[in-house]
Simulated scan of single mutants.
Amino acid sequence: MYPYLRYTKSIVDAVIANKKGHSLDFADTSAVDIRCSVTDIDPMMEMNNGRILTVYDIGRTDFIIRTGLGRRLLKNRWSMVVAGSTIQYRKRIRLLDKVTIKTHIVAIDERWIYLEHSMWVKGKPCSSTLLRTGVTAKGRVIETKRVLEAMGKSGWEMPPTGYVKEWIESDTHRPWPPVA
């Protein structure tokens, strides 16, 4: 089941943080602490890999709200969509571990905003995911130029480089499953 209560709390916390002056710039990194709960673990007594992706929603939402993007989404009747992801796992997250979720933008191209999330326990990285995200209007992904203008970041550039560029390139070669 989706963690609606935890997610709602994270929204309230982000709004309060903004009101207290803890807003973020688009170039900043968001950090949110959660506790691995009994609803997060699998039979191996560690945070389930699917739950990790779900919990990353909390980090992304905090980032969206605290950068002011959330206000722009609401004002313009835009939405945000995840169009692709890749993830790596390095260390298990156990029941009751305090987890810090970090979120930041690693690249922007004409259409997509690439976000990186990571989870940390006791200062050690546990997992990291790279997301291809887009802002949509009326069900269509809009140019990031429009998003940046709405954010007061006209001319701000962060083109894909390194592993992000390599992932984008390799993803173009990935075939879709055949139609049955």
Results as ranks from 00 to 15, higher is better:
Met1Tyr: 14
Pro3His: 12
Tyr4Arg: 12
Leu5Gln: 13
Arg6Ala: 05
Lys9Ala: 15
Ser10Arg: 05
Ser10Val: 04
Ile11Pro: 02
Ala14Met: 03
Ala14Trp: 03
Val15Glu: 07
Ile16His: 10
Ala17Phe: 08
Lys20Asp: 02
His22Trp: 13
Asp25Trp: 12
Asp28Arg: 15
Val32Lys: 01
Asp33Leu: 00
Ile34Leu: 00
Cys36Ser: 14
Ser37Val: 12
Ser37Gly: 14
Thr39Leu: 07
Asp40Gln: 08
Asp42Glu: 03
Pro43Ser: 09
Met44Ser: 15
Met45Thr: 14
Met47Val: 09
Asn48Glu: 15
Arg51Ala: 11
Thr54Pro: 04
Thr54Ala: 11
Ile58Tyr: 03
Asp62Glu: 14
Phe63Gln: 14
Leu69His: 05
Arg71Phe: 15
Arg71Tyr: 14
Arg72Phe: 03
Leu74Asp: 13
Leu74Val: 11
Asn76Trp: 15
Trp78Leu: 03
Val81His: 13
Ala83Trp: 09
Gly84Phe: 00
Thr86Phe: 01
Arg90Phe: 03
Lys91Ala: 08
Lys91Glu: 07
Arg94Glu: 11
Lys98Asn: 11
Thr100Asp: 12
Thr100Glu: 13
Lys102Ile: 03
Ile105Tyr: 03
Ile105Lys: 09
Val106Gln: 10
Ile108Leu: 08
Ile108Tyr: 11
Glu110Thr: 08
Arg111His: 10
Ile113Pro: 10
His117Asp: 06
Gly123His: 06
Cys126Lys: 06
Cys126Met: 06
Leu130Cys: 08
Thr136Val: 14
Lys138Gly: 08
Lys138Phe: 13
Arg140Glu: 02
Arg140Phe: 05
Glu143Gly: 14
Glu149Met: 08
Met151Pro: 07
Gly152Tyr: 10
Pro159Gln: 01
Gly162Val: 09
Gly162His: 02
Gly162Trp: 02
Tyr163Ser: 05
Trp167Asn: 05
Trp167Met: 04
Trp176Asn: 05
Ala180Gly: 13
Ala180Phe: 15
